[in-house]
């Protein structure tokens, strides 16, 4: 069976309260956060750190999100500065891509070592 798509008339969006929700799944936030974290130069590897019941690093509540990451960081590197850069970058990227505000980003540096890039 074939269905032809009728010419699309782009109707203007209805008023925001009539428009319907846009939801972003936890794993979407998790993936975006991991990609963003890996972009920080001193970060050598990123793993989402899920809770026991989910492998996803992100948790979305309304328009806010909480993210937990396990990273491995090069050494010697100032770990506080790396963490601050990580936090800023991940929060910016998640906000730009999803419109969600990351209120909390927990970082565990599970592995330290390896040369700086």
């Amino acid at each position: 069976m074939t269905v032809t798509v009728p010419a699309q008339r782009r109707a203007p969006l209805p008023a925001p309260e009539r428009r319907g929700r846009t939801e972003v799944a936890d794993r979407v936030v998790s993936k975006i956060a991991c990609v963003a974290a890996a972009e920080v130069p001193e970060v050598r590897d990123v793993q989402p750190r899920g809770l026991p019941w989910t492998p996803s690093a992100g948790e979305v509540h309304g328009d806010q999100a909480v993210v937990r990451l396990n990273v491995s960081v090069a050494y010697p590197a100032p770990l506080h500065a790396v963490a601050a850069r990580l936090r800023e970058h991940v929060i910016d990227r998640v906000a730009a891509q999803t419109g969600l505000h990351v209120t909390r980003l927990d970082i565990t540096m599970t592995d330290v070592g390896g040369d700086l890039p």
Partner: peptide, 28 residues
């Protein structure tokens, strides 16, 4: 950005949806 994609989906189906709200879920 995902909100833009969601809004495009929403406006693409707006005439079919009529008065009903269109919920878009970005699942992955």
């Amino acid at each position: 950005p995902l909100p833009q994609t969601a809004d495009e989906v929403r406006s693409a189906v707006a005439d079919l949806a009529g008065d009903r709200p269109v919920h878009v879920r970005v699942d992955d």
